[in-house]
Design a protein around this nucleic acid. Structure first.
Lengths: 208, 208
DNA sequence: TAGATTGTTAATCGATTAACAATC
DNA sequence: TAGATTGTTAATCGATTAACAATC
């Protein structure tokens, strides 16, 4: 199906399809045309058909798409068919917030939390004990961790990232305001630069 | 300078320019060419010159750009010349994390935090007392709040958003997994859909 | 079958890159 | 002045939209 040359713009729309199809499913709707989906999701019908046809012909002429089938297909495309092991580095408010999100339902299983703060070490969040950061590398190797949620301060970010790439972690979800330099190109870095997002707001507010 | 038809792709790059120029400034570098900036920021030199010339001719032929001037100009473009008043709705871990970020240095002043949880109401975060959510509308009007950080659960998100638009809030920074429906088109909504970001990671991990 | 809607090709639009004259 | 680098136009590339034949 997928041929590896799917564009980033398409990939970034996939989670939105997934969310809206879940909503439709929960509402008991089992059939939808690209035109109807267009009206609720806000992409054009043409774009929806183009996007989906990157991965296969999931629809049926004269009928549309089966909601459940399409939801499952997109789940497969997004890699939700199997679990991922995750760790959180930096167990402050943000790290704790992420620990409490229900990412497990999508297969993201939290196996460790780490911090350097003695006041946090030993505490349990969602059944996971916060451990000292010097245990991180060892644990990642033992547990075969897939994804690290990086919630440290800006100063530690690059060093922790370097350590993570050396112990087999395959992706870093980066919440620090640093653009990480990663030598291993197979490691995926997904940035959540909150300040960039906030400055976008102020751009639009400035002359109102 | 700005003519209102700047594309979203350009606008979303501005905060990154701002960050990198700050770094250069802190390093004491006061002059940079588009080529040099290109090498550290990762955009092409051509793109950098195109981007900047949307807003004015900030450079000088044969010389390049003055780092401090350019940093200040981009700050102005991003609307950082004046303060914004902000509130946080939902004072759980995420809300508290946002309260503790140093957004004040960019002029985002937190003036209120709200929650429905009796265990949280009355607590102080960074000198701000968490108040019951039924005080939100009144306070927004009194304080002339510009931006609301929406950190409620999915169920409350749309209702709170409706209330916010009615009391003059001009932007919503949306951390809920809901695509808000806002009738007032002048209200800016900036989504931080964490789950979408995480699913993008799993897309790339799936067949590795 | 007739109607509906897909899958897919072609046309358009917008964004990025390349090139170079202007000029500091 | 000569060299460097911008600002800006033109060329290319990629993404979106439109159109329609295929087909359920």
């Amino acid at each position: 199906m997928t041929n590896g040359k799917i564009s980033m713009t398409v990939i970034r729309r996939l989670p939105k399809y997934h969310r809206y199809l879940k909503d439709l499913l929960d509402k008991g709707i089992n059939r939808i045309s690209s035109k109807e989906l267009s009206e609720i999701i806000g992409f054009t019908a043409s774009q929806i058909r183009q996007d989906l046809n990157n991965f296969g012909g999931f629809g049926q002429q004269g009928y549309g798409y089966n909601v459940e089938d399409l939801f499952n297909e997109i789940g497969l495309i997004l890699g939700l068919s199997r679990p991922y092991k995750t760790v959180i580095i930096g167990a402050g408010n943000l790290g704790q917030a992420l620990a409490n999100y229900d990412f497990e339902v999508h297969g993201f299983q939290l196996v460790g939390m780490y911090d350097v703060d003695e006041n946090l070490i030993g505490r349990k969040i969602k059944g996971i004990e916060i451990k000292p950061s010097n245990r991180l590398v060892e644990d990642c190797v033992i547990h075969n961790v897939d994804i690290a949620y990086l919630c440290t301060n800006r100063e530690s970010a690059q060093n922790v990232a370097n350590a993570l790439t050396k112990c087999g972690v395959r992706a870093i979800w980066n919440f620090t305001p640093v653009d990480l330099k990663i030598s291993d190109e197979s490691v995926i870095v997904e940035d959540v630069h909150l300040i960039d997002s906030l400055l976008t707001i102020s751009y639009f507010l400035k002359d109102r």
